[in-house]
């Protein structure tokens, strides 16, 4: 495996001006501006290998978008190094973006007044895609994402979700080696989200396209990414496999039991009863202290069990734990 992106000690300080509320302060700020410096990235380093789908996770203002911008080539960092696809993104912008696809959830990248199909044809010309290749790729994507009809209506008349899907197509038509998706699932309904994810997986498999995805949707991360990078306060707090972080942080499991007949109150060491009523028990088990097997055995011997469901706590819980801890270190 070869690294497709190497980021070394990337720092970014933003200078912004601030002002207090009110008309007089607005007028004052015409002449006298107060500036504030905000450290968006405090020296992050990571590597991404070809063909990976990497989830970039972090709370608002953590530095996700700043990183994506630096990787997209339109952000000059304060210091540090990025080599992506062999280029320094902000220095070799024109050559670099020829192999890059970017979807920015919040920005318009399609021609607002024209049908999306016009933007697709523009991509064909701008990236020099062969007619036959273009047609087959477009058909493939349009079918998968259900865009046959929609792509002929002007972009301004599209729904948020339709626009997002068209943006994804526009970002992928030239078959880029690297694709950056900044909150791509905004505005998508459940079915569309599903298709969107399947589509990304398929493209990743078929073309070995590398994806970096920022999102607040943990389900998306679990469905798509093997590797995640967690960023908080401009620093990377975790960089590794999703399953490792689960293993490391999931010391608990949930057991839901349904009963055929009414049972006594459940009691066992290292187990916490979260909820119990006549026909249902919900237990949280500390798996570092007691084996799940023991708990199940105890349940089976004491109750008339109809059904058992064992589950991990959702990934959100872990992420929340990390963000809430004082130093934010894993």
């Amino acid at each position: 495996m070869t690294s497709i992106i190497t980021v070394k000690n990337l720092k970014k300080v933003y200078k912004t001006h601030t002002r207090k509320e009110g008309l007089s302060n607005a007028i004052k700020s015409l002449f006298n501006r107060k500036y504030e410096y905000k450290q968006a990235l405090k020296g992050i380093s990571f590597e991404i290998e070809e063909g990976e789908i990497v989830g970039f996770i972090g709370p608002n203002g953590a530095g996700k978008s700043t990183t994506i911008k630096a990787l997209s080539g339109f952000l000059y960092p304060t210091s540090g190094e990025v080599v992506s696809l062999g280029f320094t993104p902000w220095k070799d912008r024109v050559d670099y973006v020829a192999n890059l696809g970017v979807v920015l959830g919040q920005k318009a990248q399609l021609w607002w007044d024209l049908p999306a199909i016009d933007t697709f044809y523009l991509s064909k010309d701008v990236y020099g895609i062969k007619e036959s290749t273009f047609k087959s790729r477009l058909n493939f994507m349009v079918k998968l994402l259900d865009l046959e009809k929609v792509m002929h209506t002007p972009v301004r008349d599209m729904s948020l979700g339709e626009r997002m899907k068209c943006k994804l197509v526009a970002a992928l038509l030239h078959n880029p080696k690297l694709v950056l998706l900044d909150e791509p699932s905004i505005g998508l309904d459940v079915i569309a989200k599903d298709k969107f994810r399947d589509f990304i997986k398929l493209v990743n498999k078929k073309y070995k396209t590398t994806f970096i995805i920022t999102t607040h949707d943990m389900q998306e991360i679990e469905r798509l990414c093997k590797k995640i990078i967690i960023i908080n306060n401009g620093q990377i707090v975790y960089d590794g496999l999703l399953k490792d972080i689960k293993k490391k942080y999931l010391s608990n499991k949930f057991i839901d039991v349904k009963l055929e007949t009414k049972g006594e109150k459940f009691k066992l060491r290292y187990c916490k009863v979260v909820e119990q009523n006549e026909y249902e028990i919900k237990i949280e088990v500390n798996t570092t202290k007691i084996k799940v097997k023991e708990v199940i055995n105890s349940l089976l011997s004491n109750y008339d069990v109809a059904d058992i469901l064992i589950s991990d706590p959702p990934i959100e819980t872990i992420i929340q734990q990390i963000f809430r801890s004082k130093d934010g270190k894993v």
Partner: peptide, 13 residues
């Protein structure tokens, strides 16, 4: 409005 980034993402000056 920042939509100029769309232009910056195209491989043409």
């Amino acid at each position: 409005d920042g939509d100029v980034v769309g232009d910056f993402l195209r491989p043409v000056t």
